[in-house]
Design a protein around this nucleic acid. Structure first.
Lengths: 195, 195
DNA sequence: TGAATAGTGTCTCTGAGACATTATTTA
DNA sequence: TAAATAATGTCTCAGAGACACTATTCA
């Protein structure tokens, strides 16, 4: 019994969803994963694998699907529970260089063990969540402007989102702080928090 | 590693979703389930457990969630992959009397191993599917009238669905057969098929 | 003819798409 | 003042809710 995790993040330079990959024992790249210890919970195994490979903690991975194809892993019969998690890129700063990489989800490379399918499912899941909630993965901090939220959601969605429609959808889901910020050289923007 | 299945059906007499329960070794009632054989696929284990306990075959169970609470099963550490399937009640005719029962999903009884939670999740899943597609679980046969479809969907949803709104939603998703039937003592109804 | 069921028409309200306009800052 | 960004206004269209009306059968 194993767990595999698609850990997604955003690189501010590249307005596109990225997935963390780790170097595997067989020299290829793949998703971080591990075998379950006896009595261990799935979420703990996910956290353990990410801590070992990317030094990230305090996650709340979500189950996606159980992959049970017997021919999936040539080393033997092993079920894998695929998970997804979203994390701001600054929390990946301490990951091991050379042993990990961030790859655009649209071009994950040739991966074994059905990992490309897991990534596709993870992206779909995250996009569905972002379509309904303002930044549920906390890619932004506690406070942000609607413009910043708009850019993050466009990057997650992988396509432009209409500006005014987006504002109308999200504004009732946010709590205004009453403060204004000028960060960009335009009219000051109102700061919001999640509710 | 185990599988458990919430097998849902409709009793024409009771316009409410029912779930199949089986008598367990400890004399209580629960969902049908089994332990996975080495190398066996999850769908095959589900089918095997339902065949043994309710004599139903040819199913396409869908994964719901993996339950991994270590204290879930007092007999030892076992993960369970919950599944859901919908089946017309006539296919349950040959199930073992005394060893099985059909219970309204709203009143599943006091179940162990978190089976009540599985049922709740299964019902939610099935209701979501029925909100978008005409009878995806094939509770009706190949041909049916919009009135029959309406009654089935109301029973699945557990609440009244507006008649004309339902028709407008479903009609473009159906293929008319061109035939009329008089089954109820009113104006003859048009027969439709799934697309 | 009346009850029961099937099928259609239409009004309103809401929400999304699309576009335009105003507001405030920096260079 | 021009460019950039933020915020708001408004027109239209599609879909859902709600209600009314017509059609056809059986008792």
């Amino acid at each position: 019994m194993a767990v595999d995790t698609a850990l997604l993040t955003l690189d501010p330079a590249e307005p596109e969803l990225m997935v963390l990959q780790v170097r595997r024992a067989d020299a290829g790249w793949g998703l971080p994963g591990t075998f379950l210890h006896p009595g261990e919970r799935l979420a703990d195994a996910v956290e353990r694998s990410l801590q070992d490979k990317a030094d990230v903690r305090g996650l709340r991975p979500r189950q996606l699907h159980v992959y049970d194809d017997p021919g999936r892993d040539s080393r033997g019969w092993a079920l894998s529970v695929a998970h997804v998690e979203v994390v701001p890129i600054r929390r990946l700063d301490s990951r091991r260089p050379g042993q990990t990489r961030l790859v655009a989800v649209a071009r994950p490379g040739r991966l074994r063990y059905g990992h490309a399918e897991i990534i596709a499912r993870a992206v779909e899941h995250v996009r569905d969540r972002y379509a309904e909630q303002p930044d549920p993965g906390h890619l932004l901090g506690r406070q942000f402007t609607l413009g910043e939220l708009h850019r993050v959601h466009q990057a997650v969605a992988g396509r432009p989102l209409q500006r005014d429609g987006f504002r109308r959808l999200m504004k009732p889901l946010l709590r205004p702080t009453g403060h204004l910020v000028t960060r960009t050289g335009g009219r000051p923007a109102e700061l919001f928090r999640r509710t």
